[in-house]
C-alpha cells in the first residue's frame, strides 16, 4: 500500500564518513560530536558504527543497542544424493573453501566468500546455497539520533560483507554519519565507498602524518571528496598542516589538545560535554559540506 500523504519530496541522505589511517586519533570522538551536534540542532541523523571489530561508539551514547538483524553470507550446501564427486566445485573455488576427501566434497563455510561459483559449475545441480551468520546489526534510538552498529561474530575473519550490510540497512535519515574502522584496507573502503564526503582525522605527530598520507592515498584512489581534521593540535609539530597545504588538502577543523577534553573522554564523556560551544562549529561544517551552508 502506498501512503499518498507521504508525497513530500524527501532529501537524499547526505553521508559523511569519519576515517583515519591510524587508530586512536579521535575518529569515534569526532563522528559522535558531528552526529550529536546535528541531532541537537533538530536534524534527522543516523550514526553508524562501522568499526565492527571494535565498536565503541555505544560506550559514549551510554546505550546497549538491541539486536535488529542477522547479517548473513550465502554458502554452499552439497546435496549428497545428487553429488557424483566430480570435483568441479573444488576446482572453481578460488578460496579453498571446498576440498575433496575420499571422493566427496567437504565445504568450509568459514572460508567461503559467497561468490556462488561452485553452484554455477556443478553439472548435477547438487549445490544449493544456505545463509551463514557473520555478525549482527544492532540499533537504538538514543540521544535524539538513530544509532546502528555492526558487530562481527567472534572468530569471523572478514568484516567487509557485514559493513556493506550495515550500510544497506542504515536508517534512512537526512544525515548519515559513519564511524569507519581504522587503516586503509578492505574494511575501510567498504565503509567509505558510498559516502558523499570523507573526514580524515589525524594528530600532528610523525605517526599521524605518515598514516594520514596512507589514508589520503586511499580516498584519492577511490575518488572521494575529502578534508582533514587535526585533532590534539599543538601537541606535536606543524608538519601535518604544512603537508596539507602543499597537497592542497583543506583542513576543515583544528581541535587543540586539552587535558580537559582528554579527561572527559577518558571518563566516557563526549567532546561536546567538554566543549558545548563546538556544537555550532560541527553543524556549520556539516551544512557547508552538504551545500546547505548559510
Amino acid at each position: 500500500m502506498i501512503d499518498i500523504m507521504d508525497n513530500k519530496p524527501r532529501r537524499r541522505p547526505f553521508t559523511i564518513a569519519v576515517a583515519s589511517g591510524k587508530g586512536g586519533t579521535g575518529k569515534t570522538t569526532l563522528a559522535l560530536a558531528m552526529a550529536l551536534s546535528l541531532a541537537n540542532s533538530g536534524e534527522a541523523v543516523a550514526l553508524l558504527d562501522a568499526d565492527v571489530e571494535a565498536p565503541n561508539a555505544h560506550l559514549f551514547l551510554k546505550t546497549e543497542p538491541g539486536q535488529a538483524l542477522e547479517a548473513t553470507l550465502s554458502v554452499p550446501q552439497i546435496n549428497e544424493t545428487r553429488c557424483t564427486g566430480c570435483g568441479k566445485c573444488r576446482e572453481a573455488c578460488a578460496f579453498n573453501a571446498i576440498v575433496m576427501i575420499c571422493g566427496k566434497p567437504l565445504v568450509f563455510g568459514e572460508l567461503c566468500h559467497g561468490c556462488g561459483g561452485c553452484r554455477l559449475v556443478c553439472p548435477e545441480s547438487a549445490i544449493e546455497e544456505v545463509p551463514r551468520t557473520t555478525g549482527w546489526l544492532e540499533s537504538a534510538e538514543t540521544n535524539g539520533l538513530s544509532f546502528m552498529r555492526g558487530r562481527l561474530k567472534v572468530g569471523e575473519a572478514k568484516s567487509p560483507p557485514l559493513i556493506r550490510t550495515l550500510l544497506k540497512n542504515a536508517p534512512q535519515r537526512d544525515w548519515i554519519i559513519i564511524d569507519s574502522p581504522p587503516g586503509t584496507s578492505c574494511p575501510v573502503i567498504a565503509a567509505v565507498r558510498r559516502a558523499d564526503f570523507v573526514l580524515l582525522v589525524t594528530e600532528p605527530t610523525p605517526f599521524g602524518l605518515n598514516d594520514l598520507k596512507l589514508a589520503v592515498g586511499m580516498v584519492r584512489a577511490v575518488g572521494l571528496p575529502f578534508g582533514v581534521i587535526v585533532n590534539r593540535a599543538g601537541l606535536g609539530d606543524r608538519e601535518v598542516q604544512a603537508w596539507c597545504r602543499k597537497e592542497n588538502i583543506p583542513i576543515m577543523m583544528e581541535i587543540p589538545f586539552s587535558r580537559d577534553i582528554a579527561r572527559t573522554y577518558a571518563g566516557g564523556g563526549t567532546l561536546l560535554d567538554a566543549d558545548p560551544d563546538k556544537m555550532k562549529v560541527f553543524v556549520e561544517l556539516a551544512l557547508s559540506l552538504a551545500g546547505r551552508g548559510a
Binding site: A92, H113, C115, G117, L120, I189, R193, A221
Partner: peptide, 13 residues
C-alpha cells in the same frame, strides 16, 4: 579493483 575479490566467476562465465 577495490571490490573485486578474485573469485573468477566472471572469467569462467
Amino acid at each position: 579493483p577495490f571490490s573485486c575479490e578474485g573469485c573468477g566467476v566472471c572469467a569462467r562465465a
